[in-house]
Design a protein around this nucleic acid. Sequence first.
DNA 1: CCGTATCCATTCCGATACTG
DNA 2: CAGTATCGGAATGGATACGG
Lengths: 154, 154
Amino acid sequence: MRRTDLGGANCPIARSLDEIGDWWTLMIVRDAFRGARRFSEFQRGLGLAKNILSVRLRKMLDDGILELVPAAGGGAHREYQLTDKGLRLRVILVAIRQWGEDHLFEAGEPMMVMVGKEDGQPIGRLRLTSKDGRSIDPWDIDVKDGVRGTEDVG
Amino acid sequence: MRRTDLGGANCPIARSLDEIGDWWTLMIVRDAFRGARRFSEFQRGLGLAKNILSVRLRKMLDDGILELVPAAGGGAHREYQLTDKGLRLRVILVAIRQWGEDHLFEAGEPMMVMVGKEDGQPIGRLRLTSKDGRSIDPWDIDVKDGVRGTEDVG
DNA sequence: CCGTATCCATTCCGATACTG
DNA sequence: CAGTATCGGAATGGATACGG
């Protein structure tokens, strides 16, 4: 996404979109969460050309979303694995998923669902909250200049 | 996004990405949340060519993300307004924003922040939860076949 | 099996000019 | 102001062939 290059902007949305605001990247992350670890797994799961997958995977390695690690089973090859930064994309995928479930499917239509490993139940809905945990409606939010405070991390 | 057209897939992520998985669309939504309502406002805010903006806005109208309404001030023209479906994209923007804040900014670097209209405080972090409200880690989630149950709405 | 290199078609974007 | 029409250049995507 080059456009007029907003990558250096001080808007976290613009900067994020420059890195992951691309169809394939998020689909690769989706498959990684599903357990895909090898080149061929991503390729079969997504049905994209190898050259494209190659470029995307390398960029995601460069961006620190994926990393290459020795094969889990002890094979000679290496496998792709989500970094912590990549794992944190799960929230975005869930948000996208829940929006799609609400607005892009008919009732009764089959779909893939996310369930907690522990209870096997569909995960809860994401909620916008104020600092003290109360729910906020989508329109009760403003945007203003600020600074990343270290105390906000975590 | 044409690719191999996953739009009809039963994966909500793929289907969502087919509709909003595009750089400009989410940036337009971002500006709409910031208060942009007119063609020229979007154009100035995003710095994109008019022909592109024109196509994007029309598609978003078709998709029911935006709608045209009589000018708020009583002017002769009409203005773009987020539909309910569009307003629900706020959660996705917040998820994208928080990820970017965490991984794409240095401490102390200036950035735009979202604050609750009511208390003026930065909004809380999105949390993945199980059905009963307990927090879930990003890796403690599985994906399986399912159906959109009407009882899950809301 | 894991990629890279090449080629071609399509799409996307920006600039500009133009209409109502 | 709010778009539409056109054009050329750049990037993207798919297919295929090739190399480690």
